[in-house]
Design a protein around this nucleic acid. Structure first.
Lengths: 190, 190
DNA sequence: TTATTTGCAAAGGGTTTGCAATGTC
DNA sequence: GACATTGCAAACCCTTTGCAAATAA
């Protein structure tokens, strides 16, 4: 969005200028997010397991510390969708920037682009004299299945839509994600 | 937004139609949110303390259960700003609907209106065949003070802007909120 | 009367933190 | 060499849950 230090070297420069240090762990984590297929976002725990499977052991606390740091630097976006825990993804500059639609019943998530939201946000931030870091429009919806099931009454707590309204299912298996990353890995740019 | 059962009687009707019940606790909680001054949102804990001070003891678990229920019914909006815990406010219909600007350093929050965001959201939801319940645009910013303090480096963890960029400071004292509510209490409509 | 809701206390789950060891600048 | 960072385990905090008693319909 506003900041875009996506290469390891610019990450290093950015960190060092603040008296911080580039560590293999931070480099690895940045690398994972760089190669995450579009439409994916990882929780700290997911990132941890993903790295474990790759044989790159980074402790959970380091992961939590790193994503928090990178979020405060504006490198990552912290998403609070409806899963009950945070997800992270690269805070990409303009044309890749996107928003989310969530079903508040089944938590399935769908991405969409909308430039005018970004424009409105820039205008609004400027008006307040604040520097824009990110903007996130989250649209809460109810999917037709949930309505058919009798929403807003209590549905079985783990009920999920039969129709997949999501390309970026937060509940999918790590292995699936891992595989997609492997496929993307060729188009790498560090 | 989409749903608007704001009176006790329509809440009762809505609950009963689902086999649920109107309890004094639920009525009280709805009442608090109805009379919350514009620009305010409460966490479960804040709501708990506020009621305590009024002498209306509702257990924390009931509060958590109630706000969750009302959110799923579309009566409340669940806000995930930057405080680390959820806040709630009435999910108001059109002209009162609003969005938030947050400073990711000091968490101060500012409200703003923007009809076009709602329009865009309606269009997007419709396009996906989903029923809109709510939409929230959250603009993450950095305030000038934080930039001056050397952002994105680590600032003192409890550092806060000297300039108040918020009419709805999440950290304000409950008593203050309580007082404002008392002042608003006259323009009641149940 | 029957099923829901409450309140309490205990458990849960994601996230943070203290501290000694390690690694970066 | 000085100071940031890691990893581990314990602590934390917000939130949820089990269950018996109370209560709305």
């Amino acid at each position: 969005m506003v900041r875009q230090p996506y290469s390891s070297s610019s990450l290093k420069a950015e960190l060092n200028s603040r008296g911080w240090r580039l560590t293999p762990q931070r480099e690895t984590i940045l690398h994972v997010f760089q190669n995450l297929p579009r439409g994916h976002h990882l929780s700290a725990e997911e990132l941890f397991h993903l790295l474990q499977k790759r044989g790159e052991e980074i402790s959970l606390s380091t992961i939590y510390r790193s994503v928090k740091l990178m979020t405060r630097m504006g490198i990552l976006r912290e998403l609070e969708l409806a899963e009950g825990h945070k997800h992270y993804e690269l805070n990409r500059p303009h044309p890749h920037h996107h928003h989310h639609i969530v079903c508040i019943q089944c938590n399935r998530t769908l991405e969409f682009n909308n430039d005018s939201v970004l424009k409105q946000s820039l205008k609004q931030a400027e008006k307040e004299g604040l520097q824009l870091i990110d903007c996130q429009l989250t649209i809460m919806t109810i999917c037709p299945e949930a309505i058919r099931m009798g929403w807003p009454s209590a549905l079985p707590s783990n009920w999920a839509c039969t129709r997949a309204i999501s390309e970026s299912d937060p509940n999918r298996d790590i292995e699936e994600i891992e595989q997609e990353i492997a496929e993307t890995e060729s188009s790498e740019d560090n």
